[in-house]
Design a protein around this nucleic acid. Structure first.
Length: 874
RNA sequence: GGGCGUAUAACUCAGCGGUAGAGUGCUACCUUCACACGGUAGAAGUCCCAGGUUCGAAUCCUGGUACGCCCA
């Protein structure tokens, strides 16, 4: 027999079991199995990352589902993988090159890619092993990487077909340019941050001299450096201050160019002076206005964020340096009217935090308007459900306002765009495979587009590409659509929306039926974890300090849908203590077992057993229902109290006599209960339960049962749970009087360990005399219907009777009377609203019968207690 | 500017039409033969504010206030 230590050694347990499960193939899906399939795709973590607390949560919750479904008899396919994370990865490897004194341009595209692949191999292993440490029951035989050859094939197929259908097109458009990573970004990768800046008021002189005494137009701008590209000044058409000047020309203060005053509705008359300069090449609003008004566009800032040749004297300057110089020059020239402080929203890159430059550039785009409508439809129709539901509102808003998606990136790391341009005739070929020669002119001078696709382009295909799409594979037929997608709500647009759109477009099916959005994990004061704040809690450290099970249980029990999680040490301690409690309960059971006690022995059931069975049946039913609806916190809470309060505090205490001196049949009952509890808890705390299972149960199983708890069934239909019998009210009443005895002792200053004689009027509990004596430390218990009041006894009132302790020397009649009077007052106070409500005609007639009956029951109970107190006081 | 969410015990949070709960902390006591990562008893709350609906509201509705997040 394996000896169990006094405290659960989680370190040993969590390093042993994963390898065992993996070797046994416990988590491997089997398409040939007669079982019903249940499938999920792991949101692929970036290869750049270490496991952080967000992952720990996002992967613990689906693991609960995967383990539950496996236990319920499903063929579970939970498929892992990692994401190549285009920008993030390239930034990291480029940083490494910089440390080595080189860069990607020196290295060249091919060598640079080699470096990234090498780095990826190592990092992928790290993150995969971290997932194993977390206990995530993934089918590693099906693991994927977003840049695997067959996933690349899926990407190319989608690109080529979408191009043929006109969904994908190329063209010059204004995009957000990240000058640090030197790539275009999609709107979603742009973050708007509030920055303290200035508002410069600049004078643009009217070319034909003053009109009505007004010699110039004053514009307000937050970006003076772009004025070199101004091709107009705009006002609101209804702004009466300026209507008479519309169409007049101005002299540009720096370039000397003449530009007109134009009117356009986008101008906010309340902003600054009501006049804004128009720079179509460097501002999205100006760009749109420029197109509407047919204005020329002059690009003065380049892709390196430096001023171009068009900037004349300022050419070559960094954009922010240029700003300073321009302001100084304007000031010197008398064109600077004033400078105000101004907070403005600055667009920065989500990844690099670089201030973005809106630039017109040749990029690839995807029109997703139709797909968006379909995505809206399937959610409205309930073909995909969201938990929590309130995310539907955001979903609706975003998809209804969706813009074309800029999918090309000027990066090396990613899926290369399958487009080739003919060097001779300029024809564009979008093909699955590299063409040998130009179909138009037979030239062999074909050059592939150097750009790669947005990382999310391949992620969007994840649920079906990992199953072998576009081939009609066995896996695709069986595991697609996925049943559940568990992910974070912060990537609802980046990922979830795009998966739904591409799933509908390319497979004509929803990619998954239910989406569960997990919360974000915050620190204990509710602040977002960030490296700069220094409040990051590392899940790897937590697993070392408190155990993986404690971490998982904490995250699960705090996962109430819709609220973020404030992770705290105390909560982790509490979960660790819970695992230890379970461990010790099992240890106590194990110590008292003899070899002949096995799960094959028909258990002998008494009152306590029937009560415990009832509790387990009730709780496990509720847990099953809660997990079905993603109410993880509720499931965890129910099991916590089932183990701690019902099994440990109540049942084991009552069963101690049987456990230590009972027959094998009596002990078998306890063994069955432990078996049921372990199976119910395993999805949440797999390591401690598997460890206990090995120590206590693996030698006592029925023939044919797996020795691995991870392979055993969900206990809901366990035959022992179906047993009925006994008087369900007995144990709660016993608990009540136990507590009352202890309270009487405490109130009267009796040492809890001191054994005193006791009496009780509830004679139905006489069979529990031994347990009562042991738990409440009583000398004896006299069960009698008679009056317990006596000069030597202190008396207490419980539900349905009275109890007494023989305290000859210790009794203080005055204090006792005072206590009873106090209780009488308390009862009267509690009864007051009850009596009032029951006397209320409208309540009794209008409220549902059950509500009235319940209240009446409560009132009767209290009245009875009051009667007993009054009798004792007489 | 628009949208979403949250306000409940000292702290972190459940509950979301029948009259308030958990974990932690706090107070007192207990090293009792599974567990001090334990046990027993106890104190602790105008359920953010103001209206409304209802026999009845922490719970539903309306309007505030505060905080958080998302979008523009």
């Amino acid at each position: 027999m394996i000896e169990m230590d006094k405290a659960f050694d989680f370190k040993t347990a969590q390093s042993r079991w994963y390898a065992t499960w993996e070797a046994a193939g416990t988590f491997r899906a089997d398409p040939k199995s007669p079982k019903q399939p249940f499938s999920m795709s792991l949101p692929p973590p970036n290869i750049t990352g270490n496991l952080h607390m967000g992952h720990a949560l996002a992967y613990s919750l689906p693991d609960v589902l995967a383990r539950l479904k496996r236990a319920q008899g499903f063929d579970v396919a939970w498929i892992p993988g990692v994401d190549h994370a285009g920008i993030a990865t390239q930034i990291i490897v480029e940083r490494k090159l910089k440390e080595e004194g080189t860069d990607r341009h020196q290295l060249g595209r091919d060598k640079f890619l080699e470096r990234i692949w090498a780095w990826k191999e190592q990092n992928q292993l790290d993150i995969e092993n971290q997932l194993r440490r977390l206990g995530a029951s993934l089918d590693w035989s099906r693991k994927r990487f977003t840049m695997d050859p067959d996933l690349n094939r899926a990407v190319r197929k989608v690109f080529v077909e979408a191009y043929a259908q006109g969904r994908i097109y190329r063209g010059p458009r204004m995009i957000q340019w990240d000058p640090v990573s030197r790539t275009a970004l999609s709107d979603l990768e742009v973050k708007h941050v509030e920055r303290q800046g200035k508002l410069w008021h600049l004078r643009y002189p009217l070319a034909d001299g003053a009109i009505n005494g007004v010699g110039d137009i004053v514009v307000a701008t937050t970006r003076p450096e772009t004025m070199l590209g101004d091709t107009a000044v705009a006002v609101h058409p209804d702004d009466e201050r300026y209507t008479h000047l519309i169409g007049k020309l101005m002299n540009h203060p720096l370039t000397g160019r003449q530009i007109p005053l134009v009117a356009d509705g986008f101008v906010d008359p309340a902003f600054g002076t009501g006049c804004v300069k128009l720079t179509p090449a460097h501002d999205p609003n100006d760009h749109a206005a420029g197109l509407r008004l047919n204005l020329p566009s002059i690009t003065v800032i380049g892709f390196d964020a430096k001023m171009t040749a068009e900037a004349g004297a300022y050419a070559g300057l960094d954009r922010f340096e240029c700003r300073k110089k321009i302001v100084a020059d304007l000031d010197a020239g008398g064109f600077l009217v004033k400078i105000e402080d101004h907070t403005s929203q600055v667009a920065v890159s989500d990844r690099t935090n670089a201030v973005l430059e809106p630039l017109v550039s040749e990029q690839w785009f995807m029109n997703v308007k139709d797909a968006a409508q379909q995505a809206l439809q399937v959610v409205r129709e309930g073909r995909i459900t969201f938990t929590p539901q309130h995310h539907v509102a955001v979903w609706e808003h975003w998809l209804n306002n969706i813009q074309d998606w800029c999918i090309s990136r000027q990066l090396v790391w990613g899926h290369r765009i399958p487009a080739w341009t003919c060097g001779d005739c300029g024809h564009l070929h979008v093909e699955l495979e590299a063409p040998i020669k130009c179909a138009e002119c037979n030239s062999t001078k074909l050059e592939q587009d150097p750009d790669t696709l947005d990382t999310w382009f391949s992620s969007a295909l994840w649920p079906f590409s990992i199953l072998g799409w576009p081939d009609e594979t066995t896996d695709l037929k069986r595991y697609y659509p996925n049943d559940v997608m568990c992910t974070s709500y912060d990537i609802i647009f980046f990922w979830v929306a795009r998966m739904v759109m591409s799933g509908l477009t390319w497979t004509d099916q929803v990619p998954f039926k239910q989406v569960y959005f997990n919360s974000l994990v915050r620190d204990e004061s509710g602040a977002k974890m960030s490296k700069s704040k220094g409040n990051v809690i590392d899940p790897l450290e937590v697993m070392d300090e408190f155990g993986t099970d404690a971490l998982r249980f904490t995250l699960i029990s705090m996962s109430a849908p819709g609220t973020d999680i404030a992770l705290s040490r105390t909560k982790l301690e509490s979960s660790r203590n819970f695992c230890n409690k379970l461990w010790n309960a099992a240890r106590f059971v194990q110590i008292n077992l003899t070899d002949e006690v096995t799960l094959n022995v028909e258990p002998e059931l008494g009152e306590a057993e029937f009560w415990m069975i009832g509790r387990m049946r009730d709780v496990i039913q509720k847990v099953t229902a809660a997990l079905d609806e993603f109410r993880f916190h509720e499931a965890a809470d129910l099991l916590y109290h089932l183990v701690w309060d019902d099994f440990c505090a109540t049942y084991i205490e009552l069963a101690k006599v049987n456990l230590t001196h009972g027959t094998p049949a009596q002990k078998a009952a306890i063994l069955h209960f432990l078996d049921i509890l372990l199976r119910a808890l395993h999805p949440m705390v797999p390591f401690v339960t598997e460890e206990i299972h090995e120590a206590v149960l693996s030698d006592r199983l029925a023939p044919g049962e797996s020795k691995l708890l991870a392979e055993r069934g969900w206990p809901l239909d366990h035959p022992v749970l179906a047993k009925q019998g006994g008087d369900a009210s007995l144990i709660p009443r016993l608990q009540d009087i136990l507590s009352a005895f202890l309270r009487l002792k405490a109130e009267n200053g009796v040492d809890p360990a001191k054994r005193v004689a006791a009496a009780c009027t509830i004679i139905e509990l006489a069979p529990f005399a031994e347990a009562l004596k042991a738990i409440a430390r009583l000398e004896s218990v006299d069960f009698t219907r008679g009056d317990l009041a006596s000069p030597t006894r202190v008396v207490g009132v419980v539900s349905g009777g009275t109890i007494a302790l023989e305290l000859a020397g210790l009794k203080d009649p005055v204090a006792e009377k005072a206590k009873l009077e106090k209780e009488r007052e308390k009862l009267l106070k509690e009864l007051e609203p009850l009596r009032a409500r029951l006397a209320d005609e409208s309540f009794v007639t209008k409220a549902p019968e059950a509500a009235v009956a319940k209240l009446r029951g409560q009132a009767e109970e209290k009245e009875a207690r009051l009667d007993q107190i009054l009798a004792l006081l007489r």
